[in-house]
Design a protein around this nucleic acid. Structure first.
Lengths: 204, 204
DNA sequence: CCTCGATGTGGACGCTGTGCCCATATAAAC
DNA sequence: GTTTATATGGGCACAGCGTCCACATCGAGG
């Protein structure tokens, strides 16, 4: 992470989008490289070449900048498969999440973003609006579709299902008492779909 | 939160335990009153009367101090009822957790502690060791006891169960897309115990 | 009774980051 | 070409950190 990567620039106005783009790119790099710990306006300013004043003008807090930079960097595809088998679809999506979070630096960054959002309202709002809410909505829609197909019980609380699957994974991500693995993800779906009761009639 | 509550004290040695006690009391007050945002060595020093040097000597990071102060302040009783009905016991404990977290300032503080622990290894270690691990162990033991009684299926993953119940609640605490309520807690237990599948034979 | 080691205290140092304020330069819009 | 918008450089006071040193005082051993 070399500081001063943008050689030097004179004063004067530059296209807003150009500046924003450079800032977000620099911020994304910094975030992936050093996490929220070393992520400051100061350093983003130094790396991107933009002045601190400019950063403050566009982003109310370092968290807000970090969130936007991160979402732009990962820009993961928002899609939820619907094969007609809700258990398979949930497993698929949950596994994708686990792989993303355990395989790359993304896991640490997401955890730190959520962490910082506890004391940064701007970040919390950005995270909810641009990340968690839309993803949550997709999963909820999938479960409700399965309910309408008669695949799960009619009184299912789809929102709670999301918490019992993804929330469980976030729990292990944020409070790593136990490891977050693919096997764990499969177990989550299995235990939730079939329940914990002793199986009288083991289904196929 | 009046600064300088300890009038003034001369130099010189004082009993270690006395100093530690005063510091932890002051830190606990500050934490409950202002959360992690305003929680700094500087202010704890000003309120407790102890010098910053002393704080640094005993606690490696502000997070470590916050954690110890918080656990000492709440010192909640560690007990898990065992009535023989696992569903009832889990519901009971989960409700107690929800009430603690929603009813008092404790919820915000816990959330902020977990948040800070994402970038403070000392805090993360303290939190795991003194709080999450022992509590988790109790819940796991209860589930495994139920399994041995034949109340839940033999291949149950007790650790995963904890994540699907408490993790779900932490999810709503840390990423408040949806509210954390007592009804939610009851739903969690119900959906997990009975499963999501369409009920052919509705149990009593 | 006295000396000495352990340990808290006051005070200061440089450093980083914040949030804000200018004046100035320059690109874009009219 | 004139005007307007906006990025820039620089400086300010402030907060907190982490560390250092000299000093005061307590407690224990002689």
């Amino acid at each position: 992470m070399t500081e001063q990567q943008t050689p030097r620039r004179g004063r004067g106005r530059r296209p807003a989008d150009e500046v924003r783009g450079e800032v977000l790119a620099a911020a994304g790099d910094l975030l992936l490289a050093e996490g929220m710990a070393g992520f400051t306006f100061e350093r983003v300013s130094a790396i991107s070449g933009a002045s601190r004043t400019t950063l403050h003008k566009w982003w109310p807090s370092r968290g807000a900048l970090a969130a936007e930079a991160y979402f732009r960097t990962v820009e993961s595809t928002l899609a939820f498969p619907d094969t007609g088998d809700i258990a398979a679809d949930l497993t698929e999506q949950l596994l994708a999440f686990v792989r993303l979070v355990t395989g790359t630096t993304a896991g640490r960054v997401i955890a730190e973003l959520i962490g910082s959002s506890q004391t940064d309202p701007e970040l919390a709002a950005a995270y909810r609006e641009h990340y968690s809410a839309p993803r949550r909505a997709l999963a909820v829609a999938a479960v409700e579709a399965a309910r309408d197909r008669g695949q799960v019980r009619v009184d299912v609380d789809a929102e709670a299902v999301v918490d019992q699957l993804w929330g469980a994974c976030y729990h292990r991500l944020l409070i790593p008492d136990q490891p977050l693995t693919e096997a764990f993800a499969r177990t989550l779906v299995d235990q939730l779909v079939h329940g914990l009761r002793t199986r009288e009639i083991t289904p196929s």
